[in-house]
Amino acid sequence: MLRRHALGLGASTILATPGLARAQGAAGYPDRPIRFIVPFPAGGGTDTWARIAAEPMQAELGQPIIIDNRGGAGGMVGTEYASKVPPDGYQLLFTITTHIQSPVVMNRFPYDPVADFAPIGRLGTTAVNFVVGPKVPASVTTLAEFVAWSQGREVSIANYAPGSTGHAFGLILARELRLNATQVAYRGEAPMLQDILAGTVDGGFHSMAAAGEMVRARRVRPLACSGAQRSPSLPEVPTLVELGYSRRFIFDGFSGLMAPARTPRPIVERLAAAFRKAAEAPVTHERLLRIDTVPSYLGPDEFGSFVTAKLREWTEIAQELNLRVES
Rank of each mutant, 00 (worst) to 15 (best):
L288T: 03
E269S: 08
G203I: 05
E269K: 11
F130I: 10
A148M: 08
A272H: 03
H99F: 12
D252K: 13
M76G: 01
V283A: 14
G62V: 15
M258V: 10
A261L: 03
V155P: 00
K277C: 03
L123E: 08
I250N: 09
L240T: 01
A148S: 13
Y186S: 09
T48N: 11
L92C: 10
D47Q: 06
I52P: 00
L321V: 07
I317T: 02
A11V: 13
G25W: 14
Y90I: 08
F254I: 13
S207K: 06
T125S: 15
N322K: 06
L298K: 08
A318G: 04
W49L: 14
P87W: 02
S12R: 15
D301W: 11
V307K: 02
V128Y: 02
G45R: 02
M1E: 10
I317R: 00
A211F: 08
Q319P: 10
T46A: 12
D301S: 15
P264H: 05
A198N: 14
E236S: 14
R4P: 03
L143Y: 01
T17Y: 15
G8Q: 13
L298H: 06
D112L: 08
I66D: 14
V215C: 06
V268T: 12
A309V: 11
G170Y: 02
L177G: 04
D202M: 06
L243C: 12
G71I: 03
P266L: 07
Q101H: 13
E189A: 11
E176H: 12
V215I: 13
A53Q: 03
S150M: 10
